[in-house]
Design a protein around this nucleic acid. Structure first.
Lengths: 220, 220
DNA sequence: ACATCTATCTCGGCA
DNA sequence: TGCCGAGGTAGATGT
């Protein structure tokens, strides 16, 4: 990783055109060839960047040009270099996450009877023309149920599930299909909309689901 | 801006919990108090971060703790500092952009006849109870048309336009109101949904619209 | 403060 | 490869 502090101006021409007037900034050149330009505020988003794969060419005239395959260009005009150092970091072992939607889906699919006695899984990520349904299952009566899972349940999620239900109910092999909106937290507006559309709401307890899963594993 | 290269492990506890095992990384501490941790790849997204406003406390035991108002925590355990330098950058003048959705809307409103002969603009940002319609206009037959503009046309945009159409069609002064979904790029699923709802799809050519605009300006 | 919407979104997954 | 959905989305804008 190369760290350069320099007064520079920057031009980006790609998905949009953008310009940064001359000012002192941090320029990061990483081992994968990517380049990013940071001001002295904001943790997350660089002022300007070029994602890998891309190539950096340092011209004789203190103009750096970064290009990628799509023809996007980042042109950095160096006016005064204040710091320039390089460091070997090696490959990062990466982030270990916990508590995201994919995990909730796994946990609930593995313990679908949490939703009611006699419920059985048809499949996770059930494919439709407008995208996959998180979980398709059957309730105790054998009625098909589409489950939409969110970490935070908002109106968008109810709309999404409504579209799936409309589509699934056109399939005579599946119809009638009921809907369940499952989330760790359900916003009041989302609950009202779901209820109005006869969609059931279930608040998921992540720790409890994981506990159940742990108990299951302990049996083996 | 402070640049620290260090072997460290990191724990985040907040909206989720995440852990970074020990490895050499870049730690950026910016003038606004924000902190970000970068591996030697990827231009855009840090491995971990804390957005401002937040406060960093460097403990005696080489443990740095960053907290924000919401109680989220970032804990950096420093194991070996390989580089540590600070630099005064000042406030950045900021990015000047061109070619975003607002601009597309201006361009299309100024050249509404792109959509068809005899089309006329009623107004941009036509206000409704559920938000402004990007463009309201009339087609060659005098029928009212609501236009939703996106840079990239996806399902959400079609849903949004559908809600507007439903509302506008309740107004006897306007009804019947047709819908046009206009974007630089329209995803297949969005097109399917739009077509199913009798909403027209138009792919906008930004450069062509700008070219027309340039031609217009040249007349004056 | 909160809600809504955009983004050079980035990123991962799956067809 | 393209398409789709999630994100600690972040960041901007309007109420």
């Amino acid at each position: 990783m190369r760290l350069v502090i320099a007064r520079c101006s920057v031009d980006y021409a790609g998905r949009l055109t953008a310009h940064l007037p001359s000012a002192p900034r941090l320029i990061l050149v990483k081992a994968d060839g990517s380049v990013s330009i940071h001001a002295d505020d904001r943790a997350y988003k660089p002022l300007n960047w070029m994602s890998p794969p891309c190539t950096l060419k340092e011209g004789d005239d203190d103009v750096w040009t970064v290009v990628n395959k799509a023809g996007e260009k980042l042109i950095i005009t160096m006016e005064e270099v204040l710091h320039d150092s390089s460091h070997e970091l090696g490959v990062d072992p990466g982030l270990i996450k916990d508590g995201v939607e994919a995990h909730l889906q796994e946990l609930l699919a593995d313990r679908i009877e949490t939703l009611g006695d006699g419920w059985t899984l048809i499949r996770r990520e059930y494919p439709t023309a407008i995208g996959p349904v998180d979980i398709l299952c059957r309730d105790g009566d054998g009625t098909t149920v589409a489950v939409e899972i969110k970490r935070r349940g908002e109106i968008d999620g109810v709309e999404q599930l409504t579209r799936y239900l409309e589509l699934l109910n056109r399939d005579p092999h599946l119809a009638p299909v009921k809907g369940i909106f499952a989330a760790q937290e359900i916003k009041p507006q989302a609950r009202v909309l779901a209820t109005d559309r006869s969609i059931g709401c279930v608040v998921l307890d992540y720790d409890a689901l994981r506990g159940i899963e742990d108990d299951k594993l302990r049996l083996f």
